[in-house]
Simulated scan of single mutants.
Amino acid sequence: MSDQVPEHLLPQQVVQVRPARVTDAYGSETWDYEGGATRTPITGWIQQDSRARAAADGRDQQTEGWLLITNHQDTGPLDQYEWQGLTFETNGPPNPVFTPRGLHHREVALVIYTG
């Protein structure tokens, strides 16, 4: 019996983007999700959990909530995830899921803002 989600239930190929800390032209530290970032292929299950449209200040903004389920244990609150041409931001700290046998998998709340 495995202590993780069986791999055949995590069929989606996702790229985890871990940003690099860099200093910008003004001397401030910021996060680089492009050239300095580390990209790690992982497997998981991604599903859309919610979507909302809010018109405010003349904007037509849509917020989509997604969930990533993965056995990949190295997940962080600043990570982004790329899947099928979409880039997701992590929405809060990743949630470790435990069973009586110990750590089972991670659930990462994701968000996309458009508009």
Rank of each mutant, 00 (worst) to 15 (best):
Pro11Asp: 11
Glu64Phe: 14
Met1Arg: 08
Gly27Ser: 09
Gln4Ala: 10
Thr38Cys: 04
Asp3Lys: 12
Thr38Leu: 11
Val97Trp: 02
Ser50Gly: 13
Arg21Val: 13
Pro19Met: 01
Pro6Glu: 05
Gly102Glu: 06
Leu68Pro: 02
His104Gln: 10
Gly58Phe: 11
Gly35Leu: 14
Thr90Asn: 01
Asp60Tyr: 11
Ala54Gln: 15
Leu103Met: 07
Thr99Gln: 08
Arg21Asp: 07
Ala109Val: 03
Thr43Phe: 13
Tyr33Ala: 05
Thr75Pro: 00
His8Met: 09
Ala109Gln: 11
Arg101Ser: 12
Arg51Val: 14
Gly76Ile: 00
Arg59Asn: 14
Trp45Val: 06
Val108Ser: 02
Trp45Pro: 00
Gln4Met: 07
Asp32His: 10
Arg106Ile: 09
Leu10Glu: 02
Gly36Ile: 09
Asp49Tyr: 06
Glu29Phe: 10
Val5Ser: 00
Thr87Glu: 04
Tyr81His: 04
Gly92Met: 05
Glu64Lys: 12
Ile46Ala: 10
Asp32Met: 10
Arg59Gln: 15
Gly76Phe: 06
Gly58Ala: 09
His104Met: 09
Gly92Tyr: 05
His8Tyr: 13
Ala56Gly: 11
Val17Ala: 01
Asp60Pro: 00
Leu10Ile: 05
His105Ser: 04
Met1Leu: 11
Leu110His: 03
Arg18Met: 00
Thr38Tyr: 02
Thr114Ser: 15
Gly92Thr: 04
Pro19Gln: 01
Pro77Asp: 10
Gln47Cys: 13
Gln73Asp: 11
Pro96Asn: 07
Gly27His: 08
Ala25Asp: 15
Ala109Ser: 13
Gln84His: 08
Ala25His: 13
Tyr81Thr: 01
Glu82Val: 10
